[in-house]
Design a protein around this nucleic acid. Structure first.
Lengths: 142, 142
DNA sequence: GTGGCTGCAAAACCTTTGCACACAA
DNA sequence: TTGTGTGCAAAGGTTTTGCAGCCAC
């Protein structure tokens, strides 16, 4: 983790290393608040430091960021295996989509539009198996 | 347009009809601000009315909403032909993606996760043909 | 007439920023 | 030492809400 920061010309600080650790351990992209709360017990770090660190590492290409349907920014490590989620509209639980089908779509799109594609974000919403079971009460709404 | 509102049990008001007209004429999803500005010269409508009307029609299923990478909510009519965009990271111009490849992906996903899929949102970012031409100055940043 | 719609202003929410101090290199 | 990182509090931008009055039905 230290190497990532050095390579980008960012200073190596405890705060940044902690944030990277949290992201590394997480199986899904996290919000600034998620990270703040995770570290709360362990050490003191202000909200603005979380945001500023995330943005610095985002600019440096160490992280990826996407805005989900809840209007919040979600951050994850920029490895070759980035993650997308599917989120239950009832219980709000999110699970990872275990594949990213965008590579081929991006190629088609580049040809059609002439754009050079640099990124994508997507999110699915649905009803998880559990909520489907208990969802008679929701069945009036399509 | 009137019929859409009636069918949903929403009252038919000038404001709502105006909003629907604007969305109908637009070739891309719009923000509340876009709609407000479009109508500004033509008539008075408060920002909260724009938001409340959009949300009422969203709940009624008349509209679709997605949050893009700029953290803004974009609204469009819920026809069978919904739209996705690709946005240039340099000049910020957005064009429509002329197809939605999600149907098949959703089927695979439903099988893999057990989720009943109710929606999706995605957005591509890239560099448009124009900016690629003028973009020597940007080439230092990957 | 009544419940839903509207305007206005204020609040909520997430994120960014100014400033003074602290720390990594 | 020097410039980058940090904490705190305040501000920013977008969206929501409380309340009083208005309008569609």
């Amino acid at each position: 983790m230290k190497g990532l920061l050095k390579k980008s010309g960012l200073k190596v600080t405890d705060n940044r290393l902690s944030i990277l650790e949290v992201l590394k351990k997480s199986s899904a992209p996290l919000t600034a608040e998620d990270i703040y709360k995770t570290l709360e017990n362990e050490k003191h770090m202000s909200f603005s430091t979380v945001y500023r660190s995330l943005n610095a590492m985002l600019d440096a290409g160490i992280l990826l960021m996407q805005v989900n349907q809840d209007s919040k920014q979600y951050f994850q490590l920029n490895t070759n295996e980035h993650k997308h989620i599917i989120k239950c509209i009832i219980c709000k639980e999110a699970v990872n989509v275990e594949f990213c089908p965008m590579k081929e779509i991006e190629e088609v799109l580049a040809k059609k539009t002439g754009y050079k594609i640099t990124g994508h974000s997507f999110e699915f919403t649905g009803i998880c198996p559990n909520c489907q079971k208990n969802s008679q009460k929701y069945s009036k709404k399509h």
